[in-house]
Design a protein around this nucleic acid. Structure first.
Lengths: 202, 202
DNA sequence: TAAAAGTTTCAGAATCATCTAAAAGAATTA
DNA sequence: TAATTCTTTTAGATGATTCTGAAACTTTTA
């Protein structure tokens, strides 16, 4: 039954799935997440299999992964033996969950590697008369830049989480004076600011 | 010749390649990028083939992709017909390039979809006596949250680029008072959670 | 304890992305 | 123009990921 509502839901689910692909998250996992995100009542495995046309095994694996990530949770209905699933719908919390997990898996290892490299090269660099001394110094410079960048982004991230959406609005005002960016940012940025001002809830 | 320097370089290249995988960027492309990033002098296709043990076709395709992204550039040496490649080594600029490209490819489509869904559902919602009226309203609420979130992140991004690294350092000081928040990320995260809970929505 | 209802695991199938090697294409020099 | 040098494209091979379907397992009810 293709009501406009259903159609909108399906469209969003498919798009979200595609996006997942770009982010190294498998399509089905992203689709399940999207489906739960846009559905008010909890769904059981069979609902998900039906709506997304996937096998039981596939559904089970990906549901488990989503639970592991902390993006959805299991729940039970009174007098019903099935497990139901529900998404966390606080977008900021969702963002925090995803970013922390990704940082742990993806950013921290590279920081460790950089630090390790810094160390081992610093020693090699003690005897600066080797032929590629300049190469080494440049290498060091570059990875230190990178290290600093990652650290900075790390604290920006904490900062953002600490102050949330309203914090960023204030920040925008604070830093740009007027709320309009000093430098004529892209139109999408201006649109973003407008949107926030005009449709902010609460 | 495994000098500590070479070893450090290789380690970093491999790690960066792995990371690429997580980010939906193919490993080889990431490795080439890393190799150029840590190498002072420009490299030609053969250098890259040798150092990464990949075929000419593979090198060629990925080099082109990196040039398309704007992460590396072609250059020529006087009296040499080969093409050489060099990475952009300004980390902030690199970040900007990557983020803009990803936003264009990955965030904008989802925003377009959300907007489209908002529209088509708003109309359906006119006749609120349909059985799933409440479902529809909740759907609307959730995707509007998401829309707002994406817009906010968009302007945060512009803001960050406008003020760069030093801007964020200052910001950190400004907002935390002491500037020591980066030393204690855990506790500030908990603070963030508390903040969100205490200002519970709706 | 047996049957029923539901969930998880896993071997193999299907699908998808990436890589190679070789041929075709361009640009430059003789 | 032919030879040389280098780059790009592509068909098919390789390898990795994801999915299915069925069996194994677990929990609940009768």
């Amino acid at each position: 039954m293709p009501s406009p509502f259903r159609e909108a839901k399906n469209l969003l689910v498919r798009r979200w799935g595609e996006m997942g692909g770009y982010w190294g998250i498998n399509r089905t996992m992203a689709e399940i997440h999207a489906l739960l995100f846009v559905t008010r009542e909890p769904l059981c495995t069979d609902d998900i299999m039906d709506q997304l046309k996937i096998s039981r095994g596939n559904a089970s694996m990906n549901l488990r992964a989503l639970v592991d990530w902390g993006l959805i949770e299991r729940m039970h209905k009174l007098g019903d033996r099935k497990e139901y699933f529900q998404a966390d719908t606080d977008v900021w919390h969702m963002f925090e969950t995803i970013m922390r997990e990704r940082r742990r898996r993806e950013v921290e290892p590279i920081i460790a590697t950089i630090d390790h490299c810094c160390e081992s090269v610093k020693q090699a660099n003690a005897k600066i008369n080797t032929p590629d001394a300049e190469d080494i110094r440049e290498f060091q410079r570059r990875i230190e830049d990178l290290r600093l960048f990652l650290a900075t982004m790390g604290s920006l991230f904490e900062l953002v989480l600490e102050f949330g959406g309203e914090g960023i609005e204030k920040l925008n005002l604070l830093m740009t004076g007027t709320g309009k960016s000093s430098k004529e940012p892209r139109s999408s940025a201006r649109a973003a600011v407008r949107t926030r001002n005009s449709t902010a809830r609460r």
